[in-house]
Nucleic acid binder design. Structure first.
Lengths: 134, 134
DNA sequence: TCGTTTTCTTGAATCATTCAGATTTAGGGT
DNA sequence: ACCCTAAATCTGAATGATTCAAGAAAACGA
């Protein structure tokens, strides 16, 4: 299924900007908004930064992209959705690396005592220093 | 051991502002900077917002307070440190609730494949809807 | 093709946080 | 007790990511 079908299926209109955003996020390595902005401009020549914000919000709401926000850095996006994987973040360079979850099904972790909360997602971030920064 | 000793032991000077910040963080429920700011003013009358930022940084660096940053909200602080507990965050009201870790020792979780990273901390956030918002 | 609704644009505003420089204070040394 | 110096705090401004607002353009069902 192509990106256009994914968009339509989510009730979103198919636009050049959105297709380029999806491709850019998929091609990049956890790009932030600015990375996506630049990537999209490379592909379609002209987009406004706000269109990128709007579209990323729409795509995120539709579950087509995942948003991660490591402490201290701007929001980053990724195309791997639904597989509930987690992230390794380098304290020095900020690099983000995917880590597969031990368990297969999301949510991979259920708190011992949910305190009455209806939990629907577990967000796990491992902090450390990446190989090239060590 | 009193807060003054904790500060001295960390190589930090003992000031009224810092003592008030520690008490405020301990008394509050994951307060953000502004909550701390107001709490400290209630206790000592006069502090600048920057002093609160500076002191919280110092306390955080010294390991006397923990900093958490749920996506989309300003940084929050808590006094429980070193026990590697995690957090439940309400998607509606933003409330934060502590959850004890299944395992006892930090890091409570070690990624299956650390990809060469020297991992020193695992940050786990559960997202859901709290009892009163359901 | 037309009309409605969504999307995109431009431009400004907001919010948390940080930076800079001057002033004060804590606490060790005399 | 009094200096001295580094650390802490103050005032005031700057930054950077993100959001708001309102008009123009584009998508797509009728």
């Amino acid at each position: 299924m192509g990106d256009d079908d994914l968009l339509r299926q989510a009730g979103l209109r198919v636009t050049a900007a959105r297709l380029a955003i999806m491709r850019t996020v998929r091609a990049g390595d956890h790009p932030d908004v600015d990375d996506v902005y630049r990537g999209v401009r490379d592909r379609v020549g002209q987009v406004s930064l706000q269109a990128v914000y709007d579209s990323l919000h729409a795509l995120h709401r539709a579950g087509l992209v995942r948003k991660i926000e490591p402490m201290g850095s701007p929001a980053r996006y990724e195309a791997r959705v639904g597989d509930n994987h987690h992230h390794l973040v380098c304290r020095k360079c900020g690099a983000v690396t995917d880590v597969d979850c031990v368990k297969g099904e999301p949510p991979c972790i259920t708190p011992v005592d949910a305190a009455g909360y209806a939990v629907d997602e577990a967000d796990v971030t491992f902090w450390g220093v990446c190989p090239s920064c060590q």
